[in-house]
Design a protein around this nucleic acid. Structure first.
Lengths: 335, 335
DNA sequence: CTGAAAGCGCTTACAG
DNA sequence: CTGAAAGCGCTTACAG
């Protein structure tokens, strides 16, 4: 590996001059044009690239961003990851990812690893229980942007969608179309977004003078396996055949749900209308295609990176730091 | 951030002793048990964690692995990424990912970035044109493991599936079941795996005394948009209605294909039998569920990490470094 | 206009 | 048994 010293030797200058030139500060530091040219030529000829470890140690900047998501293999998060990668790339940043699996202790370890690795900023979809660790980061003046899930009371920028009105929009639609017995399948995570979605379900029913019956809500354990979940959804859907519509509060629950419905040999939408929160190629392709509430993944990722990069000092800081984007109801054929 | 110096000061020892103890070499370097205990206590009390940049600069190791895939948002690669993360984590490694989008110049830039960042090892699904860059890595003695796609003639470990026999198995099955007019939808990438799959298609037909007709193969451009691809597949499938079965040579082609088939309102499997290379939740859930050739993603990822970690000196080197795993034909209801 | 020196936090030969 | 010193590759205040 060729170092600054090597170049200095090659052109007969000092390492400091080389460093200055290579950092584009030649003019500012009044290095002669002649020396500047010689150094630049030598650098490109010798194939010089700075050792980021050394730069990092010296400057405290690693040009790396830590991305902590629930699970990188989940479609929602991997789509997010791709946009994050592309955006960060424009500013010369690499991304190191970690999956929490919604396990706070795993998440905390990951924050620690990223911290030791000196990542410059953090993009996090926090699991419950990570509040303290994130607060620590903030108190160390590390730039953090939360995505998808907020932590109440932490002074940290946050970009996500307005879960309440997104879900409300969906349920309102089901009701307008004539459904009166609407079931909800959700997950027992104590996440604000899940609570918001559930609350929207309830309030929409009440607002439309429909009965809110807790028996019409199925709350699955997060830790359940796929086949357990499918079985539980099947039982839920099979028993209460008075339901005319069901809404799944996440992507993967919807996928499980479709499997259950297939097993039960119910016809969508005749036997049962289906609405799902979060889109997925599966839903678009299903016969019939499933009506969904779609999050603007692109916009979420872009905005989050933009804010983070702003904090890292590359662009102007974004003024409004709590950003709630709107989801869109995409009407297909399942309702 | 607390440093080794701080600890040294706190316990009244030298930084070197602290370093030795904290690296678990106290016994070996014959540091007294008393000092060892004092240092360890202070370190945990003060919340010491090594600065990985400094360690990296000094030792040349960053405890980071670079993962270069075609596209992190693609289900196959994000699933791979999750297993890679979990396996690497066991050995204390972080993963930084990059998507090439099958663009060699982007891929080369990414290798360069990872190199500057001093990643310890590389896990790569190479795009065509990255051969030279990978060769460079090898000549610098950087550990590299190729996944999914090989590069002929490079002395580099490689783990993937036996694409030829996997595809052969699938086509043989279609023929045994009675199909004589079998179409193939594939992509124009000059990748060995794609060639192997195509070759298997051809050879299976010939072996069974069926006509191999190039008009029955549709080769899509990699750069096509989703809707372009769907339109082209529709045209292909619509015209030659003598086809009784079609096989898609990748995951995303299959997804496009299902959309085309839906648009054409063809019944699977009565009007057209469908077989797809690579599994996907979509296929499992489709009505009817699609028969697929499934790659053992878990095994691929685990094996690749295992070999890489082996090369990094943590476990014994794996002896057999070119590993071809077997794919499995999963018979569902689309044939 | 340019160079010598210090120092980021760590590890490792070396000396005692 | 323990410490002082050098050095990884870089950047930046300082001196001239």
């Amino acid at each position: 590996m060729v170092s600054i010293k090597d170049i200095a030797k090659a052109v007969g200058a000092s390492p400091s001059s080389v460093s200055i030139v290579l950092n584009g500060k030649a003019k500012q530091k009044r290095i002669s044009e002649k020396l500047t040219a010689r150094i630049e030529e030598a650098a490109s000829e010798m194939g010089y690239y700075p050792n980021r470890m050394a730069v990092g140690l010296r400057t405290g900047k690693s040009k790396t961003i830590g991305l902590i998501v629930e699970n990188i293999s989940n479609n929602f998060f991997s789509s997010l990851a791709k946009i994050v990668e592309d955006e960060a790339r424009k500013f010369g940043y690499n991304i190191v990812y970690c999956s929490t699996e919604n396990d706070a202790s795993r998440g905390k370890e990951e924050i620690q690893m990223l911290y030791n690795q000196q990542v410059d900023g953090y993009l996090i979809t926090p699991a419950n229980g990570m509040e303290k660790a994130i607060e620590n980061l903030l108190s160390q003046n590390k730039p953090v942007v939360l995505m998808d899930r907020n932590i109440e009371g932490l002074p940290v920028p946050f970009v996500a969608i307005d879960n309440f009105s997104a879900m409300k929009q969906g349920i309102d639609f089901l009701i307008e179309v004539g459904h009166k017995q609407i079931g909800l399948v959700t997950v027992d995570l104590e996440l604000q977004q899940m609570k918001d979605r559930e609350r929207a379900y309830k309030e929409s029913l009440i607002q439309h003078q429909l009965k809110y019956n807790t028996a019409n809500t199925l709350k699955l354990k997060y830790g359940n396996t796929a086949s357990q979940s499918v079985a539980l959804i099947s039982a839920f859907l099979g028993q209460r055949n008075k339901l005319t519509a069901v809404v799944f509060s996440t992507n993967y629950l919807g996928i499980y749900g479709l499997r259950s419905i297939q097993q039960l040999q119910l016809n969508i939408p005749n036997d049962l209308a289906v609405l799902c929160f979060d889109d997925n190629e599966i839903f678009e392709l299903h016969s019939p295609p499933i009506t969904v509430i779609k999050q603007p993944i692109n916009e979420i990722a872009k905005t989050a990176v933009e804010i983070l990069i702003g904090q890292l000092g590359h662009t102007k800081a974004v003024e409004q730091t709590n950003i709630l984007l709107q989801a869109r109801l995409i009407i297909r054929k399942s309702v």
